[in-house]
Amino acid sequence: MASKALGLLVCALILALDIVAGILGIKAEAEQDKEKHLRLWLFECKEPSHEAFMLGAAAIGILVIAHLVANLLGGCSVCATDEIKNASTRKQIAIAFLAFTWIIFAVGLGTLVIGTMANRKSRASCGMSHHNFLSIGGIASFVHGAFALGYYVTATMAT
């Protein structure tokens, strides 16, 4: 009974962290859009937003924590390709969730970093447009939560 309660707590923690990271990414995009900017095709001149930078940095940190929690507490121990081929169906599904979790994490983290770095104080210049990167990273955080939850559940069921 205690293990079920702990499992539910971990699932809630993973989902909460990813949801918070997603909301922060979307709020950072909204703060970035409040700044004045001049856009010409792919090039953009704009003032950086300190609030967008701080919200983006927080979203990055929380997404990393959510990913670490899911991966460290999931505990899937199959790493070699021979072990994957001989693993049970549940372990193979857990490995598929793990792979998707890493891919979505990389996309979400990358877009959040690009969007956040575009709002550094030293970036008050013209350059390539970094529009919507923060909101894409926020949405990727929501998707990461779904796959991380799927990974945690299937990995713990397989053990």
Rank of each mutant, 00 (worst) to 15 (best):
C45W: 13
F100D: 09
F97V: 09
C45T: 12
L17M: 13
F105L: 11
L9T: 15
G25M: 03
L72H: 08
G56N: 03
K34C: 00
T111D: 04
W102C: 05
V20A: 15
V107P: 02
A12G: 15
V64Y: 05
I103K: 04
A106R: 01
A58I: 03
W41E: 10
L13M: 13
E29F: 03
I93V: 15
L73Y: 07
H67Q: 13
E29I: 03
L109T: 04
I93K: 04
T101V: 06
L73G: 01
A12E: 10
L17N: 04
I65R: 02
A28M: 09
A12V: 14
V69I: 11
L8P: 10
G61F: 06
K46G: 12
H37L: 08
L8C: 13
T89G: 07
G110D: 06
V78K: 03
L63K: 08
I19Y: 06
G74C: 07
E83F: 04
A59W: 06
K36D: 10
G56D: 05
K85T: 00
N71Q: 12
D18R: 00
A59S: 15
H67V: 00
S77P: 01
T101I: 01
C11E: 14
G56Y: 05
V10W: 10
G75V: 10
E35Q: 14
G22A: 08
V69K: 06
D82S: 09
A30G: 07
V69F: 09
Q32F: 12
H50G: 01
E31D: 11
E44G: 04
L42E: 04
K34E: 07
L9M: 14
A5M: 13
L98I: 00
L109A: 09
M54A: 12
I14E: 08
I19V: 15
S88Q: 07
L98Q: 11
V20D: 06
F43V: 10
I14G: 08
L8G: 15
Q32S: 14
A94I: 03
S88M: 05
V78I: 14
A87M: 03
E44R: 14
F105E: 06
F105Q: 03
A16T: 15
L38Q: 07
T89L: 12
E44K: 13
A99H: 11
C45R: 05
F100Q: 12
L13A: 15
L63Q: 12
A21I: 11
L15C: 14
L109K: 05
I93E: 11
L55T: 02
H37Q: 13
L17I: 04
G110Q: 03
I65A: 12
V20N: 02
L38D: 06
E35G: 02
A96G: 09
G108Y: 02
H50V: 09
V64M: 10
V107L: 15
K27Y: 06
A80R: 11
A16S: 15
K4D: 15
G75Y: 09
K85E: 00
A58Q: 11
A66E: 09
E29D: 13
A87K: 01
H67W: 12
I103F: 14
A70Q: 07
F43A: 09
L68A: 13
S88I: 07
H67T: 11
L109P: 01
I19G: 03
I62K: 06
A2C: 06
L68V: 07
H50T: 12
V10L: 14
T111S: 04
H37M: 11
A99D: 09
K46D: 05
A59G: 09
A106F: 10
I60F: 01
